[in-house]
Design a protein around this nucleic acid. Structure first.
Length: 490
RNA sequence: GGUCGGUUAACCGAGUGGCUAGGUAGCGGUCUGCAAAACCGUUUACGGCGGUUCGAAUCCGCCACCGACCUCCA
């Protein structure tokens, strides 16, 4: 299969032509969330970014297996606090729930929010707690190959040993000496041979809820292991693309590389992709920093920092307006700009569907199409794609105004292009449609518009303005045309 | 302190050597009873100082500021 799709590979720090291992099949693994609290705006970024990737690869006729995990065990709150409490266990205790109730609750929210953002579900969504055996097998392999050691029922990865043959730190550009001098002193360090070694299996402290039997101790798997074990299980020893947020590059993805290489003797991932962060007031939005806005808060407007609610598609458009490797700064002003821009785009799609062809054409749709695909092929440059689409919007509106002409062939081509790019690939949708009482509203509006036309015929401007103004405050915009009038929801 | 990245107009953001994205906001015009929408035109730019070059927002050097990672994080 031929394509010109290039991906910026975080490992090589270069754009590379995308060549799947077993075309037309593509294996894609993306790090999912730890489900212990509500989904926030920051989470929308990777999910929309990799949804765009999934949609585009699928559009290019690849058969994509998209695996996105749910972390429901093994992430410690604070390793310095002695035993280190699991984030999920902590939340369970606070809310008087079973750990799995916490997981289910926030996983449900995550799924609902992502559906609202119109992201496609992954092909497989494995959970760490359901793959403890696979993770143990992975540890056994690493131990057998001599890259891990056991101390008091816990198993640690031996980075010095690993570094003799392979290079630890290649993804994040870190040197072992720097890590050595910079690693904090942790309690468990006494058990570790070196401060930078990381846990593959941790013996459970007394009272620890989420634990499993193992050859080493009753305990739980280390933080980085699940992704190595599950990606290899579902995508094979070597697969195409691994994605995630930039903040996971180190140590999470670095450790994944080390684990897979230590267990399998080779690296598992051909292309590493990392999305950048969403910032607020110039600072990363993060759960741990407490400066986050949840998606439900954004949708409802129920947050002190929000001047108004913002629809899921506004958020999707806002994110797509920046390139995925750049930071994007959240503000009400920026969101309102995105909302207006999205409206303009959606309005043009509707206008396009009603357009009448001319005998001749002044528009080169093929040229526009070419530019759009070049943008996508250039490491998913969605902002450039949108800029070309807005060129298209101008063309569509100019056809209505009579400044441009389009023939039947061009019109079909333009419709196909817009439908494919806007809905299928960018995954946007018109939020104003789908209301149940649309039909009744239409009937009522017909009557109101007719009454207003009568008033206008009688030059009764007071009445016609009153109707228009009151409709406006009810959220309906009336627009006078040469003959008659049309209306739309604002 | 170490590693990496950023600094583009009122705001959000593209852009890697000459062709000076796009959206939002502003201004002027066309249309209109008025307005809105749409269209046409248009104002604010490339952190600072040097250097390379016929030519630099783009390459190089220094400085300033901001951020990410180095602990869990999307």
């Amino acid at each position: 299969m031929q394509n010109n799709f290039t991906i910026f590979n975080s490992l090589s720090r270069k754009k590379e032509l995308f060549k799947p291992i077993h075309s037309p099949f593509v294996g894609l693994y993306v790090c999912g969330p730890t489900v212990y609290s509500d989904t926030h705006l920051g989470h929308a970024r990777p999910n929309i970014t990799f949804d765009l990737l999934f949609r585009y690869l699928t559009h290019l006729d690849y058969k994509v297996r998209y695996v996105r995990n749910i972390t429901d065990v093994g992430h410690l709150e604070d390793e310095t606090a002695g035993e280190g409490e699991d984030r999920i266990s902590k939340k369970a205790r606070q809310e008087h729930l079973e750990p799995m109730e916490v997981v289910q609750k926030y996983m449900n929210t995550f799924h609902r929010n992502l559906e609202q953002l119109n992201t496609l579900p992954p092909s497989i969504e494995p959970r760490a707690s359901g793959h403890v055996i696979e993770q143990q097998e992975f540890i056994k392999q690493i131990l057998a190959n001599g890259y891990a050691y056991e101390v008091n029922g816990s198993v640690y990865f031996d980075i010095l040993k690993y570094n003799e043959k392979y290079k630890y730190g290649k993804l994040s550009g870190r040197k072992l000496e720097d890590l050595q001098s910079n690693t904090r002193s942790l309690d468990s360090q006494q058990e570790k041979h070196n401060s930078f070694d990381f846990a593959l299996w941790k013996k459970a402290a007394p009272g620890h809820i989420m634990k499993w039997p193992s050859p080493w101790s009753t305990g739980f798997p280390g933080w980085h292991l699940e992704c190595s074990a599950m990606s290899v299980k579902y995508l094979g020893d070597v697969f195409d693309i691994h994605g995630g947020g930039m903040d996971l590059q180190f140590p999470h993805h670095e450790c994944e590389i080390a684990q897979s290489t230590a267990a399998l003797g080779k690296e598992s991932v051909n292309y590493w992709m990392h999305n950048n962060m969403i910032t607020i007031n110039g600072q990363k939005m993060a759960r741990s920093l407490g400066n986050f806005i949840t998606l439900d808060q954004l949708f409802s407007g129920n947050h002190p920092a929000l001047e108004q609610p913002y629809g899921p598609m506004t958020i999707r458009f806002f994110i797509l307006q920046a390139h995925y490797r750049s930071t994007i700064d959240f503000s009400n002003e920026a969101m309102q700009a995105a909302e207006k821009g999205l409206q303009k785009l959606m309005k043009a799609v509707i206008t396009l569907s009603k357009l009448n062809p001319s005998a001749t054409s002044t528009i080169n749709v093929d040229e526009l199409r070419k530019k759009c695909y070049e943008a996508l092929d250039d490491d998913l440059n969605s902002p450039i794609l949108l800029s070309h689409l807005f060129d298209g919007v101008k063309i569509i509106n100019s056809v209505v105004d009579g400044g441009e002409k389009i023939d039947a062939t061009g019109l079909e081509s333009l419709k196909e292009l817009f439908n494919t790019l806007v809905f299928e690939i960018l995954g946007l949708k018109d939020e104003s449609t789908g209301k149940n009482d649309e039909k009744l509203t239409a009937e009522l509006m017909k009557i109101i518009v007719e009454l207003r036309q009568n008033a206008k015929t009688n030059k009764d401007w007071a009445t016609s303005d009153k109707i228009r103004n009151e409709l406006k405050s009810a959220g309906i915009a009336l627009k006078d045309l040469k003959d008659g009038a049309e209306w739309e929801r604002e």
